[in-house]
Each structure stands twice: as C-alpha cells, then as structure tokens.
Design a binder for these strands. Sequence first.
DNA 1: TTGCTACTCGACAGTACGTTGAAAAAGTCG
DNA 2: CGACTTTTTCAACGTACTGTCGAGTAGCAA
Lengths: 205, 205
Amino acid sequence: MSIPPGRRRGPSKGDRREQAILETARALLARKPLADITIDELAAGAEISRSSFYFYFDSKLSVVVALLHGITGELGRDAGPWLDGTGPDADALRKALTGLAVLWRDQGRLLAGALAAAPGCPPLARWREDLRSAHVNRLAARIERDRVAGLAPDGPAPRVLAGLIDDLRTAALNGSTDPEALVDDLVTVELRMIYGDFSDHHPAE
Amino acid sequence: MSIPPGRRRGPSKGDRREQAILETARALLARKPLADITIDELAAGAEISRSSFYFYFDSKLSVVVALLHGITGELGRDAGPWLDGTGPDADALRKALTGLAVLWRDQGRLLAGALAAAPGCPPLARWREDLRSAHVNRLAARIERDRVAGLAPDGPAPRVLAGLIDDLRTAALNGSTDPEALVDDLVTVELRMIYGDFSDHHPAE
DNA sequence: TTGCTACTCGACAGTACGTTGAAAAAGTCG
DNA sequence: CGACTTTTTCAACGTACTGTCGAGTAGCAA
C-alpha cells in the first residue's frame, strides 16, 4: 500500500508481465470504474496468478500510481503559454483547457479513480497535492503579476483564487461525460474569475 | 444496498435502537471519515450485534441516507433571498453561502462521504442529483432573468453556468478544512462568474 | 553442474460484508 | 393469566476480496 514494488533490476520476462498488468488495467479502466476492478482481474488479464501480482505491485493503487506516472507530464503540457502569459488571453487559456479536456476524455476513469482514492492513500494524496500546488503556484503568480500591472482587478488572495479555479476545473471535468464540450465555457468563466469586474452600473455596455 | 430498511410499523424499542445507530454514526463521523467506519462499530455503538444491525438498515450507506435526510432541508435554507432576488446582491449571496459553509463545517464528513459514495450507490446518486438540479434550476432561472433585464452579461448557457457554480461550491467546500473562511472569496468569485465583464481595455477603473 | 536470482503459485489468515433460520422478548387480546 | 402474533435478536454460515508466506520452478551465468 505504498510506492512501487519490490522488484529488482533486469529487463525481461518480468518486465513484460509488469507491462501486461498495466495494459490490462488500462483496458479495464476503459470500460468500468476503478472501484469495480479487482486484483484477480488484473492478474488474470496478465495471465498470472493473483499472488504473482503482488510480486509486481503492492496493491491496486500502486498500479494506479504507475499509470498516473505515465500521464502526469501531459497534465500540464499545454498550459505553459497561458500560465506564463499576461492578461486575459483567451486563446492561450483555451489551448490549456483543451489539452486537459482531451486527457480527461481519454483517461477520465483513471483520473476520477485516483481522485476518489486520494484521501486514504498517501501516495495518491501526494500526487494530487503536488499537481495542484504546481498549478496553483504558477497561476497565483500570474494573477499577482496581472494585478500589479493593472490588468486584473483586486480580489481574493491570488493563491486562494488560483485554488478555486483549480477546484472548479477538476470538479467540472471530473463530473462531465464530454469534457471537451465544457472548454469554451470554462474559458469564459475562468477569465471572469480573474479579470471580471462588475459594479452596480450595468446597463449593457 | 438500496433504499431504507425493511422495518414495519410500531413505535418502541426498535425505534430507540434505530436512533442509537444514527447517533453512533454521527458520533463516529465526528472523528473519522465514512470509509473508515464499519458496520461492526455502528452495531457496537448501538449495543446490538452486527446481524441485528441489518434489521434496521440495509447497509452503511442506508444509514448515510437517513442521516442526510435529516439535513437535506437545511442545505437550501438560506439560499432563498439570493436565488429569488435580482442582480449582484452580495449580501444575499453571502448569507446563502454562509449557511452552506456552516453546514459543511458541522457535517463535512457526512457530506464528503456521501459525495464520494454517490457514484456506485443509486440512492445517493439520486440524492446528489436532486440537490444539484434543484439548485441549478433556480440559479439558472435567476441568471436568465438578470440577462434579460440587462443586469448580467451574456455568456455560457444559464444551465451550464449554474452547473459550474454548483461544482465550484461543492468542490471548494468539500476540500477545505475551514469552509467559513472561504465564504467571502466565493461570493466575489460567484458574482464575477455571473456578472463579471471584461474587455481588453483594462487600465484600472 | 552448480548456483544465484527472477519469478510463480498454492495455501493460509484476515477483514468486512450480507443472509438465514431458529428463538427470545414484547405486545395483544380474550 | 395464557395462547397467539409481531418485533427484535443473534450465532452460524457463505462470499468476496485483500495481503502474506514459503516452498517451490524457470532462466541464465560461470
């Protein structure tokens, strides 16, 4: 119930098995939620006995961690231009969100499962926390920058605001069956959260 | 693993036991998450055997449903003025959110547990869905109204926007250890999501 | 071949769940 | 009070899954 397995060095049969397990997990996740997948199934899929499974992984969640490891890089991939940019750059934000949405479409069950299991599984909790704080830090910095430059109005502490935006994204993508359909609306809403200003004077424009 | 129990009519000893189980559940939830609570503990707390527990409830989640039933009313309590009002009424919104935050402070573990268990438990899924759509419907109507009145700018379809706001609330409150501290920031952010307008012209005010 | 390491699996132990059937406690009615 | 019904109780059982142990077998190197 912790990090990877107890395997030693050496590239061979064992590695193929390890791959087979991961492969099986991916395949199963394509058609049912993580919670419904048992170690028996993972072992069967890799054509080994259940006990052999434990030679490769500590538990089901270790498999999840390994799977996650493979995609963590992509989670932030398209966000660079937006996070390093300035002002309400809808295009950059849209690209960042589209990347995320696509990932969520393809790996939704994995990500949902990981999020659901995070409380109660330290390694997953760390993964989630690291991911979140990486995003929040950069976004908070961006917000601060824009406020100093007079591009964004004052409001919640940058860190808090960034946290709320992260929460919103995660919740929205996680809930939806068609994440890509949300992108445009998320763009609008995130920009409003950061740059939106309003007063009681609101007779149109 | 479905709806309520199989109990018959009659007010007496059994009712006290049923109460005792609910009481125990409340007490346990005050100090650990739902997932860590076993039926053994619930039974022990009510001073009955594990098998007797099943006379009163189908499963742990049925207890949750019963507990939820007790607080569902309060979930929307303070939202009336905000949802039935007009325009960016920060005070009304703050009152609505404060009510929610307080509830979340007191019942956080129960609500978090319910949300976590919802996928995979029809009755809980329904509870969540009903709650959500109740809120989304009213909020969407409000948004529509304000747009027609020229009080709110155009943007995502009212239903979608309302959904995003609901997601945000839930995620933010659910994640936080001190929900009340978030209220003011949520007020700002929700108002921006609905009323916030921005253009590329942003030299301060 | 010896010998080491990677790998395998059956058998076991543990935890939690949910069911069943027999029977004790409580309530009802004459 | 007693016969009769309903409510309540629980031990015993079966099931699903998890994780561990130790005795192996397969593969390769010297």
